[in-house]
Amino acid sequence: MSPATITSQLKEKFPEAILDITEFADEKILHIKSQHILLVLTALKSAGYNFLADLTAIDNLTLGGFERFAVSYHLLCHETAERLTVKAYVSEEKPTLPSVESLWKTADWQEREVFDLYGIIFEEHPNLTRIMNPDDYEGYPLRKDYPRLGRKERDDFPVVNRGIRKKKPLE
């Protein structure tokens, strides 16, 4: 099913879920409310968009948008090689939305990455723990209000002292 057909079909079927449909660089983008994500993606998967090519997030802090964060799902239909992007908006106060791990196993690690870097919580995820940053890390570094140079975590390690006399520096 072509992206244009499926998006207009979905708009008829779930009018309360869909915020907007836009197009960029010849590809359709479906903007939806995050609580309906499973519904919309299940419909898209059965309509032929069988492959989750990527799952990531965008911090709209300075960009404007329906909400502070957008979780974006990049879908690919293997049969027709057509692509479709779905953006689910979550708010800053309550950054939660349902996990899609039940639809695509690959979402497991990708959702953990989004959680690690943006602090977005995926409900029903089998193991929502940090995947790249250390387990005891605090904060979500890809949020736009996180300082680029961090909060001194890179300076905070024990200094190894061998108790050996300092060597002469080379000339």
Binding site: Y146, R148, G150, R151, R154, V160, R162, K167
Partner: peptide
């Protein structure tokens, strides 16, 4: 890589010759 996650020189923490 002047970012939050990269150590700005290992000699801050271990002796380098």
């Amino acid at each position: 890589f002047d970012t939050y996650s990269v150590i700005q020189g290992v000699d801050q923490f271990i002796p380098v010759d």
